[in-house]
Design a protein around this nucleic acid. Structure first.
Length: 574
DNA sequence: GCCGTTTTCGGCCCGACTGTTTTCAGTCG
């Protein structure tokens, strides 16, 4: 699938044009096209030129560049720009606070060859004297280099959300505010997060800012103004706090939640109607009358749009759907009737069946699937055939005693390196459902990995493929698989795909989950819980589902157990 | 480079903060 490669090239072109101070709207056009191609659920290679032009932000010119890439493997404009602008300028620009202008200036005037050299020159005060640069700028460049070196990639949602919640709790106690919300990509529950955005309502913003920059978490203050401040916390993340008054809170929350691309679309719509939107409200241009802004819903209502839930605000078609009143009714945590991927003490989990039953009841479930590991997975104390049979007897006995809840007996069967399953069919046949997944041989070729999963899906007893790309956000990249091929086979075989809610996994990701929905493949949301507290991860999985536009009907484990079993393989059971 | 119930050409989202400036450019979100 070349969507990702093309998006990357368009983004690089945008970055290079930025350095050249090219037309900013042209730059934005490349970025917008990149975003939409990345989010496309169809493969660009399968699209005709007419269909390409249908993609928002892609016109005749960019459609031709996409065709060029598919045909030749590169884009001429991109190659020429790369020749014109040396890599070092892009490297310099990656320093926070250092933009295209300064990066180009440093390259042209001082022929700087590396970030290390830049740091050395800044320390020796050899930058001062260049146009617009004096002592403070040298300091801020050094700070920026420090941040660059500390800041790893984006952090997993599951790691950042608790930190943000803690900051909000502290501010609520210590600062004079009447309301506080997490905004930004955290509010959209994006799977990875770059910084934390917080919005507060207060009549005394200065005092709020004073408290904020003195919180114990804070390591460094980047900037501090009366309505907006930014700090770096000990965990290495940047935190932005914005404070506004009650009458602007909704507009500020919308502005600060983003995404930027979503907001730009709204602002463009406003302009066409003689209106303007900023973080203080929505206004009529001719007489500057404020039409709304206290509530987030105001803007959408005034633009004749359905209210767009935060998790859908990515400019991936939600605006068009909202215009037509066709936004999906998104699945919620309350819709989930049971968890279909749960481990117990029998393998590498921590809890007994009884404890898992209790936890399931507390979550309002009417069933859960016990899916301990299979024999080959020694590290996880995988079950032998004999242990699995013994487990079945215990579960049967327990199920007879249980009321209003049922344990489904399953397994998380390992898909072995050669593509065979870790239990024979006559064993799988005894189970209520079978979850299959890969735990080894991640370094195999894309073809090998894909064919292993495809082979598993063709087995009549495999109900669900779990965490199909194997990614561990921030720890291990997704292994190479041909997801189009996998989804195609899922469709053909009726195998369900899992959205694994484990915060480091979130796998399927939002883009592929959306694609699975469009193909009408059964989807389940499961936590992969190894301890009962991890049942709470369900909200992460549901957030991915919501970002993927999934409705209740798209998610199999919103069904009661009888319908669920009819929906999942094997189809012949009663 | 895209796009069109005011346009096929002329628009294109908007504001806060900083540093080096005397009115603004650069950067960020």
């Amino acid at each position: 699938m070349k969507n990702h490669e093309i998006a990357k090239i368009f983004n690089e072109i945008a970055g290079l044009l930025e350095i050249k101070t090219d037309n900013p709207f042209r730059i934005r056009a490349y970025r917008r096209a990149a975003l939409n191609i990345e989010g496309l659920t169809r493969n660009v290679e399968d699209l005709s030129e007419d269909e390409l032009i249908e993609v928002p932000g892609v016109g005749k010119d960019l459609a031709a560049k996409i065709a060029e890439y598919i045909k030749t493997g590169n884009v001429a404009v991109h190659e020429e720009l790369k020749k014109e602008i040396p890599q070092i300028v892009l490297d310099l620009e990656s320093v926070p606070g250092l933009g295209p202008k300064t990066a180009m200036l440093l390259h042209e005037k001082l022929q700087i060859k590396s970030i290390d050299e830049l740091a050395k020159l800044a320390e020796e005060h050899k930058l001062a004297g260049l146009p617009g640069i004096r002592g403070k700028t040298e300091e801020s460049i050094l700070k920026g280099i420090g941040m660059l070196r500390r800041s790893q990639e984006r952090s997993p949602l599951g790691k950042v959300l608790p930190i943000a919640q803690d900051l909000v709790d502290q501010l609520r106690v210590k600062a004079p505010l009447t309301r506080i919300d997490i905004a930004g990509s955290l509010r959209r529950w994006k799977d990875t997060i770059k910084d934390i955005d917080i919005l507060a309502m207060s009549d005394n913003p200065k005092e709020v800012m004073r408290v904020f920059v003195h919180l114990p978490h804070v390591k460094e203050v980047i900037m501090q103004g009366p309505t907006k401040s930014s700090v770096v916390i000990k965990e290495g993340l940047q935190v932005d706090l914005r404070v506004v008054a009650k009458e602007s809170y909704g507009a500020a929350l919308a502005y600060f939640t983003g995404s930027k691309e979503h907001n730009i679309r709204l602002r463009e719509m406003a302009v066409k109607r003689g209106l303007t939107i900023n973080e203080y409200g929505i206004f009529r241009v001719k007489d500057n009358t404020k039409l709304g802004g206290e509530k987030e819903e105001d803007t959408y209502r005034i633009l004749d749009l359905q209210y767009v839930p935060p998790k859908m605000r990515e400019d991936r078609g939600e605006i068009e759907a909202a215009i037509e009143g066709k936004l999906p009714k998104l699945v919620t945590v309350k819709d989930i009737k049971g968890d279909l991927h749960v481990h117990s003490k029998w393998s590498d989990g921590s809890h007994t069946f009884e404890q898992l039953v209790e936890a399931s009841k507390e979550h309002g479930y009417s069933y859960f699937a016990l899916t301990d590991h299979s024999q080959g997975l020694g590290v996880a104390r995988g079950l032998t055939v004999e242990r699995l049979a013994e487990q079945k007897r215990e579960i049967d006995t327990l199920n007879k005693k249980l009321k209003n809840i049922r344990i489904l007996h399953g397994t998380e069967v390992d898909i072995r390196s050669d593509g065979t399953l870790d239990f024979p069919d006559d064993v799988l046949q005894t189970l209520d459902l079978v979850v299959a997944s890969i735990h080894s041989g991640f370094k195999q070729t894309k073809e090998q990995l894909t064919s292993r999963i495809v082979a598993a899906m063709k087995n009549p007893y495999v109900s669900i493929i779990a965490h199909p790309t194997g990614r561990l956000i921030g720890e291990r990249d997704a292994y190479e698989v041909d997801m189009d091929e996998i989804l195609k086979t899922a469709k053909e075989t009726g195998t369900a795909m899992e959205i694994n809610a484990y915060p480091l996994r979130l796998d399927l990701s939002d883009i592929y989950a959306k694609k699975a929905k469009e193909l009408r493949i059964p989807i389940v949301i499961s936590t992969d819980a190894h301890v009962t507290t991890q049942f709470n991860f369900m909200s992460y999985g549901v957030s991915i589902a919501r970002r993927s536009w999934l409705e209740k009907e798209d998610v199999a484990n919103t069904l009661e157990v009888r319908q669920l079993l009819k929906k999942l393989k094997p189809f012949h059971r009663t």
